[in-house]
Design a protein around this nucleic acid. Sequence first.
RNA 1: GGAGAGGUGGGAGAGUGGUUUAAUCCAACAGCCUGGAACGCUGUCAUGGUCGCAAGGCCAUCGCGAGUUCGAAUCUCGCCCUCUCCGCCA
Length: 430
Amino acid sequence: MLDMKLLEKRAGEGPSFLDEYRANLVHRGARTETLDQLLELNRQRKELITRSEQAKAHQKKVSAQIPELKRSGKDASQLLAETATLAQDVKTLERQAAEIDERVFQLALTLPNRTHGTVPVGKSADDNAVEKKVGEPRTFSFQAKEHFILGEKLGIFDFERATKVAGARFTFLKGFAARLERALIQFFMDLHSSQHGYMEMIPPFFVNSASMVGTGQFPKFFDDAFHVTGTDYHLIPTAEVPVTNYFRDEILEEEQLPLKFCAFSPCFRAEAGAAGRDTRGITRQHQFQKVELMVFAHPERSYELHEELTCHAEQCLVELELPFRRLNLCTADIGFAAAKTYDLEVWLPGAGVYREISSCSNFEDFQARRANIRYRSKGGKPQFVHTLNGSGLAIGRTIIALLENYQQEDGSVRVPRSLQKYMGGVDVIR
RNA sequence: GGAGAGGUGGGAGAGUGGUUUAAUCCAACAGCCUGGAACGCUGUCAUGGUCGCAAGGCCAUCGCGAGUUCGAAUCUCGCCCUCUCCGCCA
């Protein structure tokens, strides 16, 4: 959510700020009319609140005379009649003010975050900036296969039975696939908690709607999530939701910052609109598991911590010796709530593409404002924290990368050295 | 899931329709005192909104939401949560 006060203040200073933000909205594919509507509605809101409060103050003043009259034994009936009328007026004004207040709030929730100055302006995902490439893609003396071919041949994925038992976009992992999944969770959680200074966390996998609003999923992306009928429980699309909301409506001490968590969770995504893309294999599933890195930061340090968090995510790929590149997502491709996002894309020799395996974002105060997460500096007023998160990493996609990068001509797959101890010493999957 | 009890500021805790402007205590912070401290004394001590150049004013918030009333922490209804007991369960 945007800072309405700042928006108004800067709008009053001249058109340049608003023009800049309008351009930003256009680049993000959002409607600029919403902004104008919001500013106008907020003007009306303030006017109504002022009138409502003045009426309320007057009513209270008059009403306070009643007990004095009664105590001195005088007749209060005339005053009672007067205050009865006032009460009606107050009720009407209060109702109007509350209604417009809600409208402003709901409208403000639909506007995306402003992007940081270092985010490239672009029209499509093609305009994302490649910031660096790490690791040399391996050359194969044979035709490299895609992960689902390898997996099926190894007998470690069962798509057909998953469809029977659950539906499309679900998979049974068997044998070494299940073992790999378990090993990677352990490996990543160990790395972040013992090397990178994050507090381990396993959050609830269901959250209430207030939490989904807090991180930006609701109201705009309601249909992307699974919901439990007849309840206010919603399956988390990422651990980011429960972990960010961990401090919802709280005021932290400045010395506590930054607070760093690494959280393991399954993730559930309905994403009805994505049907037809990546239908083969485990690339795009309704359910997958992920280790998520999450930081609550002092605003002055959030960009420094964003770089650090991204490096921590990259370290997973470095240790697994998987080639990857880092993208700085452009205005057209960046997510709704983010101010800046680095995507890490791992090289998949079978598919012949770089595929997203981690997304590391700085949300600045966008989520903190929605979720009301603040910190207090000594003697100062509470201020909104900055929130950051990134995958470290998505487990399923890491399995894809391992299969494709470490495949051998006979269809067997080597296990990278750093992972072998988590695999019970197994060095080749066959 | 059932029954009972409860939810008031950072913490404890008073307050059953109008001098409540939420008492009091503790903690915290600032000052005085001291060579320095402790003790003692004095003061400060919520959050949000809104008006105002400012000083400051006003409004809201006693788990959440509706309602009754001129007026609600206090009365009514619904919901949430906590505790105790019972049931069920990994």
